[in-house]
Design a binder for these strands. Structure first.
Lengths: 262, 262
DNA sequence: CGAAGAGTTGATCCAAGTCAAACGTTGTGG
DNA sequence: CCACAACGTTTGACTTGGATCAACTCTTCG
């Protein structure tokens, strides 16, 4: 259920760990205050934004995971993007209702910015508008990378590619955890809906990667045991390159420490 | 081959038929002049922008068709987007080379805007920056629609969906032709690379649609004989809805005249 | 005319889907 | 604290949509 946050607005924009990576990084103090003025808490599994709804808002993820999805009329679902802290949705107009929905995957806190308010701020601050364009360009590149996966990569490559991307993104957006692990709050059905496969087939690909000692994945935790093998399985032959994540590093070093520092 | 346009800049921005639909629509006279100052002609089949190149430019298609693509290391190709007059590429940074390439499908004229010049203009003109964000949001929505096709639609649905989208987009971007036809300068191999299928299978789907009297497609001309059947084949059950194209119309009227006038 | 590219067709194969049945985990309420 | 329900994962047997392979034909254009 959607619940009003006990106190409107996130507690403290100055301490926000994703501020520099998101739209607020380009906002002066006054604008930042307006952007962070409202927030909403959503429980895991509930919709932050229902497909077809007219919310009139932009949402910036503050804490937790969500996914952007499209539902077809017969119930098939495509997950378009996983949303991490700092990610933004709602820039696309909603005449006739939002084309895409967003569902919380964990308990979620999102900053709520009425679209009109954002436009007013941005009309006076070119830096804000440009920053938004830059973020959208990153999203677009990420969407294209995803598109290539669905169109031209095998099931195994898709799974490896997505795990690598999520591992990398989570490391840069969420306070790092001890060891080369991340919390991955997704079911195999989520991976299936993101990758255009069935949960059964996702399961087989994951088991294979586990059997080969490439990853460990249990109880919502992902550990990348062999980053190079995972990159190879994802189809990277020379270097790891994630347009839209801002990540590019040569292959050939072992260990995981390089991730997030390039 | 890439050839310098005989006279730098397109002949006349005032007469540009896509001006209002693209970035230039938000530009004052001075900015418009700077945006249209340089252009480049590219012959059919040549790259406007090679994947991996560092051009430092934004390109706005002025005349002709192109496609944005990603090439995998083993030669597999994914077409990410078909570019029509008014479409823009190159907003995403190119540190280490462009992640995606763009190839002309017909003789092409594109306006060339050095990225630094655009940023300078946009820093002084919030309207320009906002317009860019709006266009990118449209592109993003279109990319998501494409993503859903590759992930969750059958081959037949994908083909019908893409034809409908291209038919609709071409009608709004290119001077309309007599009859319910458009020029579609694509080979079946292009459709295959866009839809994640093989040319052989594209051929079978097209033949089926032709045999059912839904479309006619010969010699680079597409005629939509039965728009409702095509919409149904694309998976639309109630209304045609193209996020990112700005098109939404109810099903149930015959004829094609409604397209492009909504 | 002849060569290269694009479209067409049939035969066969295989990656991923479907179906079905356990088995594990998690959370909840009695 | 246990029992049970709901949900997620695993596994095997079988099917299928689309790929692959291999001709052959039709256009286009120099």
């Amino acid at each position: 259920m959607v619940v009003a946050h006990p106190r409107s607005g996130v507690s403290n924009c100055e301490d926000c760990i994703v501020r520099s990576t998101t739209i607020c990084g380009a906002a002066d103090a006054e604008a930042a205050q307006e952007l962070g003025a409202l927030s909403r808490a959503v429980s895991a599994g509930a919709d932050l934004l229902a497909q077809g709804a007219c919310s009139g808002n932009i949402y910036v993820i503050h804490r937790g995971w969500a996914c952007l999805y499209e539902l077809l009329e017969d119930g098939r679902r495509q997950i378009l993007r996983f949303l991490l802290p700092g990610d933004m949705i709602g820039m696309y107009g909603e005449d006739g209702g939002a084309s895409f929905g967003a569902q919380a995957l964990t308990p979620l806190i999102a900053c709520v910015v009425p679209r009109e308010r954002f436009l007013r701020l941005a009309r006076e601050r070119p830096g804000l508008a440009l920053r938004m364009g830059q973020l959208m360009a990153q999203q677009e590149a990420l969407a294209y990378e995803h598109l290539t996966s669905l169109g031209r990569r095998t099931a195994r490559e898709r799974v490896a590619h997505l795990l690598l991307e999520l591992f990398y993104r989570a490391r840069t957006r969420i306070a790092p955890e001890p060891g080369d692990q991340i919390t991955l709050p997704l079911t195999q059905a989520h991976l299936a809906d993101a990758l255009g496969l069935t949960p059964v087939h996702i399961n087989r690909m994951l088991r294979a990667l586990r059997a080969e000692g490439v990853i460990e994945l249990t109880q919502r935790r992902l550990k990348v045991c062999d980053p190079d093998k995972l990159a190879t399985a994802a189809g990277f032959e020379r270097e790891v390159n994630f347009p839209g994540v801002g990540a590019r590093r040569p292959l050939g070093n072992d260990g995981v420490a390089q991730f997030g520092t390039g």
